[in-house]
Design a binder for these strands. Structure first.
Length: 416
RNA sequence: GGAGAGGUGGCCGAGCGGUUGAAGGCGCCGCUCUCGAAAAGCGGUAUCCUUUUAAAAAGAGGAUCGUGGGUUCGAAACCCACCCUCUCCGCCA
């Protein structure tokens, strides 16, 4: 409990929440005990009544008494379930506890840089932002997209549409053929439970697009449908680790970020992403996080894009995560590294909420699996990074070598 | 959208409202038999929670037969709503 308190304080939370949880919990337990006693009593007497009736005796007195007891049971059940609702509400709003290797800090400024890979190409001209390049090349059209929907939706044409599709295929192929992930194509609309499992609900409802007539939401990331593939299952130890790669579009309301990244592909309401998801045995999860990170990094290496890896500190780490690495790609026009992947170990946080367990060989009972996921990669941002890092003086963009086969051999996107 | 059928343990499949957590079968595990295997026989084979314990094991208790409510002293069984599956008709990519 002390560890939890400390951890929550590091996340900038107060302690009274913890106190109220402990209080409610002990109250719940005492209700449960009396309730179970009463139910036991009911079961015993019910059997007696049955026996009496069978032997032709009179059970009227028992039935009278039971009527009263039954009423009490019902009342206690109601109180208990109210209590549990209250407890759940608090518990579902508590964030995960950061792993001990996560540095303490208050915001992203305190995230240590773990490594830097690749050197930004010196472009002998002022690098153009990708939205300018995209519009000049006739492959991106943000203005027309607003007519179709509104702000922050992408519209691709020609080699741009092709490049986006090429990236998706390239990433899926790399992860399935070289990293051993199983490809899956899940639903793009999910229910409340799935979002509760992964931690988006109940706390971050405002970040989601919700369907009007249904208790359904557009996926904010493939993490949600894919992690829930094994919702409420008991797996066998021999099945682990389970690793999935999935392409989905992602839909985010981006509430509260209205002034930021208003131009370009960086912050859109809809974007494509290839996601890696793992379900693993607890004792392996931190090794698995490292290989997950490597698998995501590999894409950037193959595309020869400069990037760095940062470790998120306690003040910046996501709600559900115990440890998160961000991969940031070099964006020449802004002269900064921008997040392109986020790789996290959730330990048992999501597994507990989604009741995803496994059975150990020769051992009684079950354990929660550990879940992990990471972008491999955010496709829209990769697209932007390629445009900016591969731009030429004449405004054309070279296609990275490994992508050319996916572009029908195209080596360069030229101005029309 | 219209008409019907159904959802029971790892699987198949019984189940007049009262020792049915659930028959029977299959599968799986253990044992017996065998030089070994098969066959046969015997035994076992869900999950969660509470309580007792320093803890574990074990014990005791509660819950779970799609989900949630209701009727009843008592529900897998009766009633209602919802979800899901299947069949037929219509419509549709």
């Amino acid at each position: 409990m002390d560890k939890i308190s400390q951890a929550l304080t590091n996340r900038g939370m107060t302690l009274d929440i913890i106190n109220s949880v402990t209080q409610l919990e002990s109250k719940r337990r005492s209700f449960l005990v009396t309730l179970e006693d009463m139910r036991h009593q009911r079961n015993v007497v019910s059997d007696e009544i049955a026996a009496l009736k069978k032997s032709g005796g009179n059970a009227d007195q028992f039935i009278q008494d039971m009527r009263v007891l039954s009423k009490q049971i019902k009342d206690t059940e109601t109180e208990l379930s109210n209590l549990e609702t209250e407890l759940d509400a608090i518990q579902y709003s508590l964030p995960n506890i950061p792993h001990e290797s996560v540095p303490i800090g208050k915001d992203s400024a305190e995230n240590p840089i773990i490594k830097k890979m690749g050197t930004p190409k010196i472009v002998d001209c002022e690098p153009l932002p990708h939205w300018t390049l995209g519009e000049q090349l006739g492959i991106l059209d943000f203005e027309r997209a607003t007519k179709i929907t509104g702000a922050r939706f992408p519209l691709y044409f020609n080699a741009g549409a092709r490049l986006e599709r090429a990236l998706i295929n390239f990433m899926l192929d790399t992860h399935t053929q070289h990293h051993g992930y199983k490809e899956t194509l899940p639903p793009f609309i999910v229910n409340r439970q799935s979002l509760t499992t992964t931690g988006q609900l109940p706390k971050f409802e405002l970040d989601l697009f919700k369907l009007e007539q249904w208790e359904y939401y557009l996926v904010p990331t493939a993490e949600v449908p894919v992690t829930n593939i094994h919702y409420n299952e008991i797996l066998d130890e021999t099945q682990l680790p389970i690793t999935y790669v999935a392409y989905t579009p992602c839909f985010r309301s981006e509430a509260g970020s209205y002034g930021r990244d208003t131009r370009g592909l960086i912050r859109q309401h809809q974007f494509n992403k290839v996601e890696l998801v793992k379900l693993v045995a607890p004792e392996t999860s931190y090794q698995e996080l490292e290989t997950l990170l490597q698998d995501a990094e590999k894409i950037l290496q193959l595309l020869e894009l400069p990037y760095q890896v940062v470790l998120l500190c306690t003040g910046d780490i996501g709600f559900s995560s115990a440890k998160t690495y961000d991969i940031e790609v070099w964006m020449p026009s802004q002269g900064v590294y921008r997040e392109i992947s986020s790789c996290s170990n959730f330990e048992a946080f999501q597994a507990r909420r989604g009741s995803i367990r496994f059975r150990k060989q020769g051992k009684k009972g079950t354990d929660f699996v550990h879940t992990l996921n990471g972008s491999g990669l955010a496709v829209g941002r990769t697209f932007a990074a390629i445009l900016e890092n591969y731009q030429n003086k004449d405004g054309s963009v070279t296609i990275p070598t490994l992508l050319q086969p996916y572009m029908n051999g195209l080596q360069r996107i030229e101005r029309p």
